[in-house]
Design a protein around this nucleic acid. Structure first.
Lengths: 244, 244
DNA sequence: CAGTGGTCTAGACCACGCC
DNA sequence: GCGTGGTCTAGACCACTGG
């Protein structure tokens, strides 16, 4: 980290970004675990050999990406996939009135098969790659809200079949069981008509308009790790999006 | 700005936030106009009587909210509602394949009336308040994409009836004609069935599933200034949302 | 070449949480 | 009272832009 200013005219990267990447590497390697208190700014500055201000810029950037949580007076922690954070960060479907709540889940099926064309494209898989598929219904206040299909590359989730019950918060499961951190996700929304299967699962008439959310989730190294297809009833709920 | 550290234990506001608010005030007052080059960091620091670093934090925060555009070597500019920025910032409906494009608009109707319950709630209006309503169809590549109703509080848009043609980019119109800057927007998405009117405007069968976007746009002072109801065909397009 | 924003440093003080 | 992150300052140098 001594060659801070060698800036070969091209490929110049600010020091704080280099520091940030080296710290993200510690998250990827598992050297820093979710929930853990990391060293203070002063300690990191001494260890890495840069000023406290440079460490600060790196940590602030990581906190801005929800990888770290900074708490004045206490320290800096590695972000955890706990319910409330996931709810706020990754779950944009809100009841029309009342507070956002985490829906319950009921798993219908869990199968293994060859990834189809769409799944291979979304998950960057080769032909013939195997995937796990989880189908579940999620309810809010006792009423069905969404039918969901989660598709996981089998290669990234070894021992998936040996798993007992699948919990509601699967991102915590990915983290604890396979050390996979979901860092960001990209969603594509469309309006579709309920298929007979959807109608049955959701208890709605066939061809009811549903909000279809196709989500691809990415890990810390920006590899796609999950494809999720949700078909949502939006009679009493909506997808919330803030633009600025 | 001399009493930087009087911090009455409660109601403490960091200096850079106070500076930021005073600079936002210059935008609201029109002292700084869209597109204008504002004074350099050093000049502002001297004028306001704080360090360059504090000015920087304020300007960076404003740039993060897309109020300013900073360009190394050139200076800091007030953001303008130009096509490409609006497209990127406020228009999340993308073709399934190909680059995002700004759709064309054809205005069907322009009427004035009393705001209904929903409009009053969204725009924070009192009973009996008047609104303008613009109904238009937007097309992409010659095919109808969305039917849109724009609702504006008449009080905020004086002389609206004297307006000639309504341009495609209405945010630029708001800015140039009424000095209203749209700083952020909040959207609620649902799936609905096409009404007969929608079906006619969009040239689709009745009851086709449509993506319904209800957007409320806010000005620099965080007052709602526009309600927009869009019903979108999502056969060849989708709403894009990035979560991190 | 001068001027701008961007980075980096070093040091002081403040607000906060915990003991 | 101590250690943490948060703010504020001052100054140096770097990368980029335009004349």
């Amino acid at each position: 980290m001594a060659e801070a200013g060698d800036a070969a005219t091209f490929a110049y990267r600010p020091l704080y970004l280099q520091v940030k990447e080296s710290l993200i590497r510690r998250l990827i390697d598992g050297q820093w675990q979710p929930g853990q208190l990391i060293p203070s700014e002063m300690e990191l500055a001494r260890e890495i050999g840069v000023s406290q201000g440079t460490i600060r810029k790196a940590l602030d950037a990581m906190a801005g990406e929800n990888l770290l949580i900074r708490r004045q007076g206490r320290g800096t922690y590695v972000a955890e996939p706990e319910e409330s954070r996931i709810l706020f960060q990754f779950f944009r479907l809100m009841p029309d009135s009342g507070e956002p709540t985490f829906p319950t889940s009921q798993v219908l099926r869990r199968t293994r098969g060859a990834a189809d064309r769409e799944e291979r494209a979304a998950l960057a898989l080769g032909t013939g790659a195997a995937v796990w598929r989880i189908e579940r219904v999620r309810e809010l206040g006792g009423a069905p809200l969404m039918a969901e299909t989660i598709v996981l590359p089998a290669a990234r989730f070894p021992g998936f079949d040996a798993l007992g019950e699948i919990p509601n918060n699967v991102y915590r499961l990915y983290s604890e069981r396979w050390r996979i951190t979901v860092a960001r996700a990209s969603e594509r929304l469309k309006a579709v008509a309920a298929t007979p299967d959807d109608a049955k699962a959701l208890g709605c008439p066939r061809a009811t308009p549903l909000l279809r959310i196709a989500r691809v989730a990415f890990d810390l190294e920006n590899n796609p790790v999950e494809l999720r297809l949700s078909r949502c009833l939006t009679r009493d709920a909506h997808y919330s999006s803030e633009l600025r």
